[in-house]
C-alpha cells in the first residue's frame, strides 16, 4: 500500500471553525450564465452568456432554472479544458424545494453528485466542501455549482409573478442565472494561479428577524459572526484582504454588517463589497435592496471577482456568500429567519 504522505502533515484545522489547506486547490475554470436583467446590469458584459428568454426555451420556470444550471456546468467544464468524465464530484444546490432545479439540471451530466442546501450561500458551501475533498485527497477535480431564477423564487417564496403589489425598499431581487467553479488539485491554466487557501464555515445565526422582505437584515449577523470568527481563527486584521465580499446582503444588510463589525473593532468599511449591490444598478433597474439568490454571489464571483484576481487588481479576497434558511412554511408558522455565511479565502499567485 502506498504511503499517505498527508498523515504526517500538520493538521489543517485553524482556530474554532476554520481550515487552512496544505495543498490549496486551484480554480481552473468558471462560468456565469445569466438572464436578461442581469445582462443589462453593471456586470452584464462580464458574464459568459446572457440569455434573453427567461424560459430559456423550456415550459416552466423550474425547467428553465435547470437549463441555466446545465449550461453553466457545461461551460465551466469546457473552459477548464475538461470533459464530464474528468470531474470526480459535483457539489450543487438551489433554492427550490428538494433541489429540483439541480437534480433535473445536472442529471444528464453523469457525474457523481452531492446535493447541498445553503440557500443563497450554496456556492460558498460547495466551494468549501469541494476544497476539503481535493485537499483531503478524495478528489482531483470537483465542480461546484448553484442556480436561482427570479420567477421560480417569486412563485415559491412570494406571490405569482403577475400579482400586482408594491415591494418594500428592503426587498431584494432574485438573480436569474447559474454560476459554476471547477476546483482542481493541479493547475492547468497557463496564466497565474488562483487558489482556495482556506475556509471558515459559518454557524446558523438568528437575531430574530421575521420579515422575508428584509433578508439582508436577517443574514447580516451571520456574516458578522463568520467574519469575526475568521479574523480570530487566523489572527488577521480586516485589511489583510483586498476585498471582503459578501453574497447578497444588499444595501440594508451591508450597512448593518459594517455597523455590527465596528462594535467588534473590525472595520471593513473601506474594503467591503456585496455581490447584491454590484450586480444591478439600483436606480435604473428598480431592484430596491439589491440582488439575491444563489446565483447572485455565484455569477458575481465567477464573472467579476475571478477576473479581478486574474488581472491582478486584487491579490487576496475573502468570499462570503450569505444565506437565509427560511421557507414559506416556517414564515407562515411565525418562525424567524436563520442566517448563515460561509467564507472562502481566494488568492491569486
Amino acid at each position: 500500500m502506498p504511503e499517505n504522505k498527508n498523515l504526517n502533515n500538520k493538521s489543517k484545522m485553524i482556530g474554532k471553525q476554520s481550515l487552512l489547506f496544505n495543498s490549496p486547490p486551484y480554480i481552473i475554470g468558471a462560468s456565469s450564465i445569466t438572464g436578461k436583467k442581469e445582462g443589462e446590469g453593471p456586470l452584464g458584459h462580464l458574464f459568459d452568456a446572457v440569455i434573453e428568454d427567461p424560459l430559456i426555451g423550456k415550459e416552466t420556470w423550474e425547467e428553465a432554472e435547470s437549463e441555466f444550471m446545465k449550461q453553466a456546468a457545461e461551460k465551466a467544464i469546457q473552459k477548464a479544458g475538461l470533459t464530464n468524465k474528468d470531474i470526480r464530484y459535483l457539489l450543487a444546490g438551489d433554492l427550490l424545494g428538494q433541489l429540483i432545479a439541480t437534480s433535473f439540471g445536472i442529471a444528464e451530466l453523469n457525474i457523481p453528485f452531492f446535493g447541498l442546501f445553503g440557500a443563497c450561500s450554496t456556492i460558498g458551501e460547495a466551494m468549501s466542501i469541494g476544497s476539503i475533498l481535493i485537499d483531503g485527497g478524495f478528489a482531483d477535480k470537483v465542480l461546484a455549482i448553484t442556480s436561482s431564477h427570479f420567477a421560480g423564487a417569486e412563485k415559491q417564496f412570494r406571490y405569482p409573478l403577475d400579482y400586482g403589489n408594491q415591494r418594500p425598499y428592503s426587498a431584494s431581487w432574485t438573480v436569474t442565472g447559474s454560476g459554476a467553479v471547477v476546483l482542481s488539485k493541479n493547475n492547468s491554466n497557463d496564466g497565474g494561479a488562483i487558489r482556495v487557501k482556506g475556509i471558515t464555515t459559518g454557524k446558523i445565526v438568528d437575531f430574530g428577524i421575521k420579515d422575508p422582505m428584509n433578508m439582508g437584515a436577517a443574514m447580516a449577523p451571520a456574516a458578522c459572526d463568520t467574519i469575526k470568527s475568521h479574523m480570530e481563527d487566523f489572527g488577521l486584521e480586516a485589511q489583510h484582504y483586498d476585498k471582503i465580499i459578501t453574497g447578497d446582503l444588499g444595501y440594508v444588510g451591508s450597512d448593518i454588517l459594517i455597523d455590527l463589525l465596528k462594535e467588534h473593532n473590525i472595520d471593513i468599511s473601506s474594503n467591503h463589497m456585496d455581490c447584491g449591490k454590484e450586480i444591478f444598478d439600483q436606480e435604473s433597474q428598480d431592484t430596491h435592496a439589491g440582488g439575491s439568490g444563489c446565483a447572485c454571489s455565484a455569477v458575481t464571483f465567477t464573472g467579476y471577482v475571478l477576473k479581478q484576481l486574474q488581472e491582478g487588481t486584487w491579490k487576496r479576497v475573502l468570499f462570503l456568500p450569505t444565506g437565509s434558511l427560511h421557507s414559506k412554511v416556517s414564515y407562515n408558522e411565525g418562525n424567524t429567519m436563520p442566517g448563515i455565511a460561509h467564507a472562502v479565502i481566494v488568492e491569486a499567485e
Binding site: 428592503s170 437575531f207 428584509n214 440594508v252 448593518i256
Partner: peptide, 17 residues
C-alpha cells in the same frame, strides 16, 4: 432582549416607503 434590540435597530435603518 438582543433580538428585540436588533429588530428595533433594523427598523430604524431600513428605508421606508
Amino acid at each position: 432582549t438582543r433580538n428585540e434590540n436588533y429588530n428595533q435597530y433594523v427598523n430604524q435603518i431600513t428605508p421606508k416607503n
